[in-house]
Every structure is written in structure tokens, then in C-alpha cells.
């Protein structure tokens, strides 16, 4: 019997989010992937999940999930766990799924591993790879039999295509307790930015405290623009109020995995590296030759970011012309 792995698929604007599809593909490689899709768009999304690896999809097309956070999904997945015993619930670390996982873990006495970058599943159970700090890597497992939860790092897996796979679809109709409707979404505000989204950009140019002052972040934006990339930031300058939190790259910000990452005036703290170490090429500009960022840079430039950034923007414009 192959292991059954559940993936709770997150929806945004009526479509599955990329991180859910990444994890679904991983689940399909580990065993029998079953998706759970909840929300008013669930019925439309369900049929396409086969091509991303799902053999079965549980569907509850109900707007309660769109209007109330966390608790409706916790109730529904818990109800499903009363009927079925998957080996594993695999979830990408996103804001909403993290909140759901924390409660599912307790409510169903599951056991939970966070921040995994890879995992294996065999007769002995789960073996999850978890990076620890900058230098250590841990292999962790769950101590009890029965389902457990593994939360994975964003972008740990690529989206896979399973040509011709058609998922069996089961409509479920769980009822909600009144407690399910306690966290009400009153409004969702999208803060628009130009250019590609930070998470999806092929090029990310990030700035840190070494830029000296908020106005100099313009040089980061200019370079990002000529490279068709997105600007990013360290927590230091987000905390300083130079930029909104949506720019933050790192452990408590976004994880990016672009082809090119340019780090300007960034020291390279472990928490920042956690969000960008997976980039294909890293170019760092820092005044201090001992800055930790240089130890992971493919090209390290010892110099003043405020001088070099505008020169580089011009140089690229010239070469592209």
C-alpha cells in the first residue's frame, strides 16, 4: 500500500496558489496524493488538480472558508481525519496554512515538523530534512503512528506535471460549529507594486542598512527595473520604516529563489540568508570585506553600494541598448 498524503490546497482569486501545487507534486512522488480544496471556487479548481499530482480531491464548495479564517478549515480537516487515516498532511509554510496547522496538530494529537526542505516516507515513517541555523541540518521524525503534519519551506519543491492524470472527486458536506465563524475577514487590501511580484521574480535586487538612508533605496528600485526584477529589503530597513513589510526577504519575510539575487549594503545575517540562499546566482556589494554575505556570493564586490548601484544601472542600460 502506498502512503496516502493529504495536501490542503490554498486558493487565491479562485485559483490554487503555487506553493500548494509544489507540495502536491512532492506528495505525488512520495505516494498517493489526495488534495483537499475548500472555498467558493473549490468545485472549479478540483478537476485541474489531477494534472498536478492529485489522485483524489475532497471538495467543499462553501464561502464560509472565504469569509472566516482558520477555524472552518480546521473543523473540516479534523472531520475528514475521523474517517480516514493518511500517513501525512503535507503543507507549505504560508500565513494561513501555518495557522491551520498549529490547531490541527493539537486538536487531533498529531505531531508536527516545521521548516522542512525535503522528506522521505517509508515503512519506518517520516524522515524530514530541516536546516538549523546556517551550518547544521537535522533529520527529524514523528514519534507516534498515525498521521502527522510536515510544514515545508516555500519553494523547496518544483511544480510537477502529471499528464493525463484525472483525480477522483468527492464532494463532502461537513457542517460548522458556531465557533468556526469567530475570525471574520472584514476586508482584504492588496497593496499594489509595479513589476513582478517579489516571490515570483527571476531577478531580485535587495538593499540593506548599508544604503545609508531611505532615499537611496531608489538606486535599488532603478536597478531592479532595468533588470525586469523586483526590489527587496532586509528586516533592518523594514523595521526602520524605509519600506513596508511586504518587501522583507528572510526567515520572517519572503523566501525568494530567483536566478539572480543582488544584495546591496546587506551584511548577510542568517535570518536574511534563510530567505534567499536558494538563489541561483548571488552578487553582493558591501563595504566590509568580512561581511558574511561574501561567503555565499558568486560575485562579491567590496565597495560602496551607493556609488556602484547607479553606475551599474547605467552600464546595463548601455549594454542593453
Amino acid at each position: 500500500m502506498p502512503h496516502t498524503i493529504w495536501v490542503l490546497v490554498e486558493l487565491e482569486d479562485g485559483a490554487p496558489v503555487r506553493s500548494s501545487l509544489e507540495v502536491l507534486g512532492k506528495a505525488a512522488k512520495l505516494g498517493r496524493a489526495e488534495a483537499i480544496v475548500l472555498g467558493s471556487a473549490a468545485a472549479e479548481v478540483a478537476p485541474i488538480l489531477g494534472q498536478y499530482g492529485a489522485e483524489k480531491v475532497y471538495v467543499h464548495a462553501d464561502a464560509t472558508y472565504d469569509n472566516y479564517l482558520t477555524l472552518p478549515a480546521v473543523e473540516t480537516v479534523s472531520a475528514l481525519l475521523q474517517q480516514h487515516q493518511p500517513s501525512l498532511i503535507l503543507l507549505p509554510t504560508t500565513y494561513d496554512l501555518r495557522d491551520i496547522a498549529a490547531r490541527l496538530n493539537i486538536r487531533n494529537n498529531l505531531g508536527l515538523i516545521t521548516d522542512a526542505t525535503d522528506l522521505m516516507l517509508d515503512a519506518d515513517g517520516i524522515k524530514a530534512t530541516v536546516p538549523w541555523g546556517g551550518e547544521t541540518i537535522v533529520t527529524a521524525t514523528l514519534t507516534q503512528r498515525g498521521p502527522g503534519i510536515v510544514l515545508t519551506r516555500p519553494k523547496a519543491f518544483a511544480v510537477e506535471q502529471f499528464e493525463g492524470r484525472n483525480a477522483e472527486i468527492e464532494h463532502i458536506n461537513p457542517s460548522f460549529s458556531s465557533a468556526a465563524r469567530t475570525i471574520k475577514i472584514l476586508e482584504t487590501v492588496v497593496v499594489k507594486s509595479e513589476g513582478p511580484a517579489l516571490e515570483d521574480a527571476a531577478v531580485v535586487v535587495s538593499g540593506g542598512r548599508g544604503l545609508g538612508k531611505a532615499e537611496n533605496f531608489q538606486y535599488v528600485e532603478d536597478l531592479a527595473a532595468v533588470l525586469d526584477g523586483a526590489p527587496g529589503a532586509t528586516r533592518a530597513i523594514v523595521d526602520a520604516g524605509w519600506l513596508p513589510y511586504s518587501y522583507q526577504v528572510g526567515q520572517t519575510g519572503k523566501t525568494v529563489k530567483p536566478t539572480l539575487y543582488v544584495a546591496a549594503g546587506i551584511s548577510g545575517a542568517i535570518q536574511h540568508l534563510a530567505g534567499m540562499k536558494g538563489s541561483k546566482y548571488i552578487v553582493a556589494i558591501n563595504k566590509d570585506e568580512h561581511a558574511p554575505i561574501f561567503s555565499i556570493a558568486d560575485l562579491g564586490v567590496i565597495g560602496d553600494a551607493v556609488t556602484i548601484l547607479p553606475q551599474l544601472t547605467n552600464e546595463i542600460k548601455r549594454r542593453k541598448a
Binding site: 514523528l142 560575485l299 567590496i302
Partner: peptide
């Protein structure tokens, strides 16, 4: 509910080339 089976060393990302800006960094 969880147990660490083993601890290993993370694969280090090799450092690349380091240059000092002598006025030509942008070109480089």
C-alpha cells in the same frame, strides 16, 4: 511528538570571486 534522528552539516554554498571596487566594479 517529534524526535531528531541525526544531525549533519549543511551543504555550504561555495564562495565565488571577490573583487575590490577600483572604479570599474559596475563594468565587472
Amino acid at each position: 511528538h517529534e524526535r531528531v534522528l541525526s544531525i549533519g552539516k549543511a551543504e555550504a554554498r561555495a564562495a565565488g570571486q571577490i573583487i575590490k571596487d577600483d572604479g570599474n566594479a559596475a563594468q565587472q
